[in-house]
């Protein structure tokens, strides 16, 4: 690259500013998702949810942050001290770095790489080490067992996730999320969720499992695992695990919205039915889709009972893997047929 010293500095500065903006927005969203989650689940259980801090409890996330910062940070006696301290950071960094390849509207993208989807998958496979190391280094039986189980869960659900994404990549013939959205807008039905309905459902289920959310939330299965790999963590370190979980919730929602529901574009038949929708700005369209999936995450948490571990594993390998393969074959034959 023929970048002179000055323009390289400028490029770095612009990138840094973009990263800060995205990070600020996503952290604000993650904090308020906790609030919304408590509020929505409260309403679904005929309670009010947080009401005390600020009007309607709106300052609750701030209070939570202050509480987490002022909590004592305990390094357990038997733990591997270094690994114990690094593990949550690995998980958080791998969750945050995903945001760099995700386009938020047609012109805003931090890292314009050809391999958007593969970067996300690679970071997901590195994030597993955060979970395993947290479990191993805690020096507690529950942590080790919970960490291994969560890792096995994430691994098992990564395969159907990758296979159902292969359908999208095949249909768009590109790894870049921007190209996927553009190819989707020009496809026959406008969204990939309709021709690849099976893949969409598989991806949705895998998204729940990859983020360790209900109904696959082993760390919260108190009766058998206490708190899984988070058992020995306290204070801000535990907060980092939850932050990583909420950020990866947003990343999964963004991926679903971009890969299956057309991202910032609306399908032509919807615009034909309601022409006024064309006036919506692209970022808002994407945000609305993402908020819907975040609400779905919360809704499912309030509704579904938790899976047992053996049920969880057999669901991934025996049901989702064959289904995603069938979906892939279907897309391949469809595309070969010229559709």
């Amino acid at each position: 690259m023929g970048l002179s010293n000055n323009s390289l500095l400028f490029y770095l500065f612009i990138t840094f500013a973009e990263i800060m903006v995205v990070l600020g927005i996503i952290l604000l969203h993650a904090a308020y998702t906790v609030y919304i989650e408590r509020k929505v689940i409260g309403r679904m259980q005929a309670r009010l949810g947080p009401m005390e801090v600020g009007p309607y409890g709106l300052l609750q996330p701030l209070a939570d942050l202050i509480k987490l910062l002022f909590k004592e940070d305990i390094l357990p006696r038997d733990s591997h001290k270094t690994l114990f301290q690094i593990a949550p950071l690995v998980l958080l960094a791998c969750a945050i770095a995903n945001l760099s390849v995700i386009p938020f509207n047609p012109s805003f993208l931090i890292a314009d790489v050809n391999l958007g989807v593969l970067v996300v998958l690679a970071l997901a496979s590195l994030g597993v080490y955060g979970i395993i190391l947290a479990g191993y280094s805690s020096g507690s039986k529950y942590s080790l067992l919970g960490g291994l189980r969560s890792a096995a869960q994430v691994l098992s659900y990564e395969i159907p996730l990758g296979l159902s994404l292969a359908g999208v990549i095949l249909a768009a013939e590109s790894f870049s999320l921007k190209d996927i959205v553009e190819a989707q807008a020009q496809s026959l039905l406008g969204v990939y969720a309709l021709p690849q309905f099976l893949g969409f459902i598989v991806f949705l289920i895998c998204a729940f499992a990859e983020t360790n959310r209900a109904p696959f939330d082993l760390p919260e299965a108190e009766s058998e695992l206490v708190a899984g790999y988070i058992t020995e963590y306290s204070g801000f370190r535990m907060g980092l695990f939850f932050l990583a979980e909420y950020i990866s919730m947003y990343i999964m929602s963004l991926l679903i919205a971009l890969c299956y529901l057309g991202g910032w574009s609306l399908p032509w038949w919807l615009i034909a039915l309601f022409p006024f929708l064309q006036a919506l700005p692209p970022t808002l369209v994407l945000a609305l889709k993402v908020y819907f999936f975040i609400f779905l995450f919360i809704w499912v948490r309030a509704t579904f009972p938790r899976y047992r571990f053996d049920q969880l594993m057999s669901m991934s390998w025996k049901i989702l893997l064959p289904l995603s393969l069938i979906n892939f074959m279907w897309v391949a034959i469809l595309k070969r047929g010229g559709l």
Partner: peptide
């Protein structure tokens, strides 16, 4: 060779070494 790079991280760092790790455990 970006694709090979991604496959290197996904397959070797993500899958093969997980196998090693479970063997260590």
């Amino acid at each position: 060779a970006e694709f090979i790079a991604a496959i290197q991280v996904i397959v070797y760092a993500g899958a093969i070494l997980i196998m090693f790790l479970f063997t260590i455990f």
